[in-house]
Write a protein that binds this DNA or RNA. Sequence first.
DNA 1: TAATACAGTACCAATTTAGTCCTGTATTGC
DNA 2: GCAATACAGGACTAAATTGGTACTGTATTA
Lengths: 160, 160
Amino acid sequence: MRLSRLADYGTVVMGYMAGDPAAVHTATGISAAIGIAPPTVSKLLKILSRRGLLVSLRGSRGGYRLSRRPGRITVAEVVEAVEGTIALTECSGVMCRCSMEPGCTVQREWRQINRRLRGVLDGVTVADLARKRTRKGPSGRTPGAVAAKPDATVAVDHRS
Amino acid sequence: MRLSRLADYGTVVMGYMAGDPAAVHTATGISAAIGIAPPTVSKLLKILSRRGLLVSLRGSRGGYRLSRRPGRITVAEVVEAVEGTIALTECSGVMCRCSMEPGCTVQREWRQINRRLRGVLDGVTVADLARKRTRKGPSGRTPGAVAAKPDATVAVDHRS
DNA sequence: TAATACAGTACCAATTTAGTCCTGTATTGC
DNA sequence: GCAATACAGGACTAAATTGGTACTGTATTA
């Protein structure tokens, strides 16, 4: 259930750009700032601009800029731009390849879960990704309980 | 962000078994019922029993049985049993391999999202997976708004 | 006109994962 | 006791995905 690494990077890039929302950022500049290989960042930026999340400016002094205010671009949009879909299961659309009996109850629940997941991802904007915990951010929403807990308690097994 | 197919199958198997919670199910029987290849079902059942979600009974007349009431086994547990972790990002634990500045704000938000995702998955039990929409199920909770909408409106792009 | 920077596509390599098979062990029933 | 059933565990193979790179083309600025 991991995000593709590219989608993960996508949020990092957008978070970085949201730190200076009006500026025009070049691929090489972003690459140097966040420590991801230039061709990879470039690939990502192309995708994000093709999907309308970024505006690209060609030529000398060109680069990329957020197409909207960072508080108006959600993580769901970023993930969807890179991955194409927000869904944990394949049986989330109308047709399902699995040969279960009609009215598969498992599928019904998964659709509900996928819908809720989208809600979660829609609840976080790229402005949130950029906002430092102590300083007050530029956009309206407040992180609330998010900033409270340093979260040193979680211990996750990363293997498979 | 797709679940591994094995984890997806896991919910199907558990949902099927939850339809007859007290019964002892054999791997071949389950395989025939849900249309997944026997070795694959077998592999899955071994994993689920090793993780304590199922009880295995060896020998003739053996098989597998749910270790708890279906209303007490959540989808989160099933997914975690098969996949090992419930998290969309790698940077969800205490340590993170990415060389971002300390106090990476992106990571902070992802941790929050992952926590909420777990909440969503914890909100659905295998009893829900088995419950038919018209008949009243055996366990307490009601599907509520879930059953209302046949959901023929979603059109998801399955590629990539 | 030269330099900069994006656009698009194609390609290679590595990782992951699905799926199968084989050997071993426990339990039941004859 | 013996045969049949069914799970336990691990190894292995093949395929799909995806990460990352490179190359050619085009637009814009100085």
